[in-house]
Design a binder for these strands. Structure first.
Lengths: 200, 200
DNA sequence: TGTACATCAGTGAACGCGCGTTCACTGATGTAC
DNA sequence: TGTACATCAGTGAACGCGCGTTCACTGATGTAC
């Protein structure tokens, strides 16, 4: 039962979306090709009509999820969404760096390169939206972003929601304190899906 | 060839050390029981004289590595060691939260509880060594720690050592900027092995 | 202190299962005329 | 425009391999007397 090219493209999108969510939610190693195909409403055999192997899926799913950005306008708005209990809970829809950073960093070359390139681009873009001198802008960009990633990680490691909330709030205040007064202008390009689950 | 109790205890220590290093270096899922036993100079069959299953090893190795602390005296000294290219490279001897946080956070209950409890304890201990009012101390403790964890993650994701170095330096400066002037007193209890590889 | 025996730490083969991947098959799609 | 045929997207069984775990075995350790 051959499918049309349009249907194939649509199915490929379903596979990438399912992979992007499942990988972030459960980790790359723990998600099987069959899991992804099932979430995309297909059986596992057809997978290889779309990708050479699992590693190619990982690479493309990462590139896909790291490439699709449309972001809140200010660093403050971004931090508010990022450092929220909703983002803490929505791992599968949340920040890819926080969900998969360590695993990708020690993994295969191609996915690692995608993530590495994205880190550089994000820092550049983020810094560009900040005021001040080059060095200080990059420092604030890096410092703010690192704080957010570390804080969401800590908040997810902490099982107690009260402690998790304190961590997120403290990080939010810490970011404000670290910036020269009167910031929060310009949009930024950092990683965050639209709040709340959006797919499988 | 039965071993003495002393020899058994010694072997158990070898297993825990090997596991602590291998898990951080390659991730828990990617390290097999046979890998750990081989690194401890034994064959895999004897493993179950020490642990009921792999999950128990994970739990105990985490408890072990998260419990053994003797730390630099000041937050500045700690951040200097933490935000270094040496720590970036020494994943297997480095911060457990940065290496395994996401994987443990989404994994089995017992290891997760160990890590969760440690997060709370570290924040408490860290805040205790800082000056100022309670709220501010905890904010600085959480903010500094989150910055460090996020920064080492970003530095490891970035393949380019120059960019990695910039990230670490910027985070270091960001931490100084975020603190009320004239800090850096008291020791702190955060996660970092003695610099440089120490075992298998 | 010596002797006889039970225990049990570690070995290495084996088992069962789940995973990534392959393959024969199907029938709708697309193309050549 | 219609017809004949080749293509190929997706199916589901099967394969090979590696993993966690089990097990019979070994012989040194520890214990009872």
């Amino acid at each position: 039962m051959r499918n049309s090219q349009a249907k194939k493209d649509e199915n490929r999108r379903l596979i990438l979306d399912a992979a992007g969510h499942l990988f972030r939610e459960r980790g790359i190693d723990s998600v099987t090709v069959a899991d992804v195909m099932k979430a995309a409403s297909m059986t596992h055999g057809g997978f290889y009509r779309h990708f050479a192997d699992k590693n190619e899926l990982v690479t493309q799913a990462l590139a896909d999820v790291l490439g699709n950005r449309e972001e809140p306008a200010t660093i403050g708005a971004f931090a508010d969404a990022y450092l929220s209990m909703e983002h803490r809970a929505a791992v599968g829809d949340g920040c890819t760096f926080a969900a998969l950073g360590p695993e990708v960093a020690r993994g295969a070359d191609e996915p690692r390169r995608v993530m590495s390139d994205t880190v550089r681009r994000r820092i550049d873009n983020f810094a560009r939206t900040l005021p001040g001198a080059e060095t200080e802008r990059r420092q604030v960009a890096i410092g703010s972003w690192a704080t957010m990633i570390g804080a969401i990680l800590l908040a997810r490691m902490a099982e107690d929601p009260v402690l998790a909330g304190e961590i997120l709030d403290a990080a939010r205040a810490w970011i404000d304190a670290g910036q020269p007064a009167g910031q929060n202008a310009g949009d930024n390009p950092m990683q965050l899906q639209p709040a709340g689950p959006t797919s499988p």
